[in-house]
């Protein structure tokens, strides 16, 4: 379970996140939406302790993330925007191993995790492929695999559909549905809700660093358009 309690984050005195409190149970599929600059990306970076709060607390499974960053980062996996800039190795197999290697696991366990993570995103058998040869959709899925290799219970994806054509988007969505069905919690950050409303359990919308909508997808759509979020059929 992830808990944000009165979280405040400032950049040079400007509040990007302004007193957000949220509780995210295990296994929940949450969509975090809001216009550009509303504080979404800043907020999720607190979930695994990449940023330090200016006020408030972040708890992962009841433990403050600043006390246990490794636990937070293995519990909450993260795939950022611009996947190209988060790969560390030249090949698919090398990259997906990076997280487990950092945990000091033995080679058998690393192999097992790499194979599982790649198969979960449909990149099995591609270990020796060079990352430069991957398509945009494959890169996004590899970024997800890199996070999954840590065997997290929550997975955060920041604007995962940017630049993907519709077949690539569908393939990614299908993988996300499978992960959710297997019990992984998903937190998808987006300014465009159209592809996610049918699957999400909950929609949280930020504006100017504050939560302005927190509802089921059905109830949320009414209010969302006024915050500049794209919603199907509106």
């Amino acid at each position: 379970m992830l808990e944000l309690d009165g979280l405040i984050h400032e950049y040079d005195g400007a509040r990007a996140v302004d007193g957000v409190s949220l509780t995210i149970p295990d296994g929940e599929f949450l969509v975090l939406c809001g216009p550009n600059g509303s504080g979404k990306s800043t907020l999720v970076r607190h979930l695994n302790g990449l940023l330090e709060p200016d006020a408030g607390r972040v708890l992962v499974d009841g433990v403050d993330v600043s006390d246990a960053p490794v636990a937070a980062r293995t519990t909450v996996g993260m795939a950022f925007q611009e996947p190209r800039d988060q790969f560390v190795a030249a090949t698919v197999g090398g990259d997906v191993r990076f997280g487990p290697e950092n945990l000091g696991l033995d080679h058998e366990e690393i192999d097992r995790r790499a194979a599982n993570a790649l198969s979960a995103v449909g990149l099995d058998g591609r270990e020796d492929d060079r990352i430069e040869t991957l398509s945009g959709g494959e890169r996004e899925r590899l970024a997800v695999a890199g996070a999954l290799a840590m065997e997290p219970s929550h997975l955060v994806l920041d604007e995962p559909f940017t630049g993907l054509d519709s077949p690539a988007r569908e393939r990614l969505l299908a993988r996300l549905r499978d992960l959710h069905a297997d019990g992984t919690g998903l937190i998808v950050v987006t300014h465009d809700l159209r592809y996610l409303l049918d699957d999400a359990d909950r929609v949280v919308c930020l504006a100017d660093g504050e939560v302005v909508v927190d509802a089921s997808p059905g109830d949320a759509t009414e209010k969302l358009t006024e915050y500049g979020v794209r919603v199907p059929g509106r």
């Binding site: 990449l50 980062r73 950022f80 990076f98 997280g99 950092n102 000091g104 696991l105 840590m150």
Partner: peptide
């Protein structure tokens, strides 16, 4: 961006070679 991603993936001193 890369430094952020490294930290998120537990970039550590004592990693398995």
């Amino acid at each position: 961006r890369l430094a952020m991603a490294l930290s998120a993936r537990c970039f550590s001193w004592n990693a398995t070679l």
